[in-house]
Computed example of a mutant assay.
Amino acid sequence: MTNLFGKLVIATHNAGKLKEISALLAPYGVDCISAGALGLPEPAETGTTFVENALIKARAAAEASGIVSLADDSGLSVTALGGRPGVYTADWAERQWFEGSPGRDWYMAMGKVEGMLAELGPDVDRSCWFSCVLAIAWPDGESAVYEGRANGTLTWPPRGTMGFGYDPVFVPLGDTRTFAEHDPEEKHAISHRADAFAKLVKDQFGS
Rank of each mutant, 00 (worst) to 15 (best):
C132W: 02
E181L: 08
P139V: 02
A109H: 06
H188T: 08
G174E: 14
P158H: 02
R159Q: 07
D183N: 07
G148W: 12
T153A: 15
A180Q: 03
F130M: 13
Y166I: 06
F197D: 02
E119T: 00
L173V: 13
D125K: 02
E114R: 08
P168H: 06
W156A: 06
E147L: 05
G141A: 05
H192A: 13
H192Y: 05
P139Q: 07
G174K: 14
L117G: 12
P168R: 02
A189R: 15
E186V: 13
C132R: 03
R159M: 01
G148S: 11
G141E: 01
I190M: 03
R193Y: 07
G163A: 14
E181F: 08
D140F: 10
N151T: 13
P157N: 05
G121D: 09
A137C: 02
D105T: 05
P184R: 04
G121R: 09
N151V: 14
A196Q: 00
T161Q: 11
K199S: 11
I190G: 00
W129I: 01
E185Y: 00
C128H: 07
A150H: 04
G174S: 11
D175I: 05
E142I: 07
T153P: 10
E147G: 00
I136G: 13
L117E: 13
I136C: 15
G174P: 14
D195C: 11
P172M: 03
D140G: 11
M108P: 03
C128P: 01
T178W: 04
L120S: 04
R193D: 04
D195L: 10
P157Y: 01
A150S: 14
A196P: 00
P168L: 02
V113H: 04
D195F: 09
S143F: 11
M110C: 15
P122C: 01
A196Y: 01
T176G: 15
G152M: 06
P158R: 04
A144Y: 10
K112I: 15
A144C: 12
H182G: 01
K199D: 08
M108E: 05
K112Q: 11
C128L: 10
E185P: 03
D140M: 10
K187P: 08
D123R: 10
V171R: 08
F164T: 10
R149L: 06
E114L: 02
G111Y: 02
P122S: 07
D195T: 12
D123M: 08
I136D: 13
T161N: 12
A150M: 13
P158S: 09
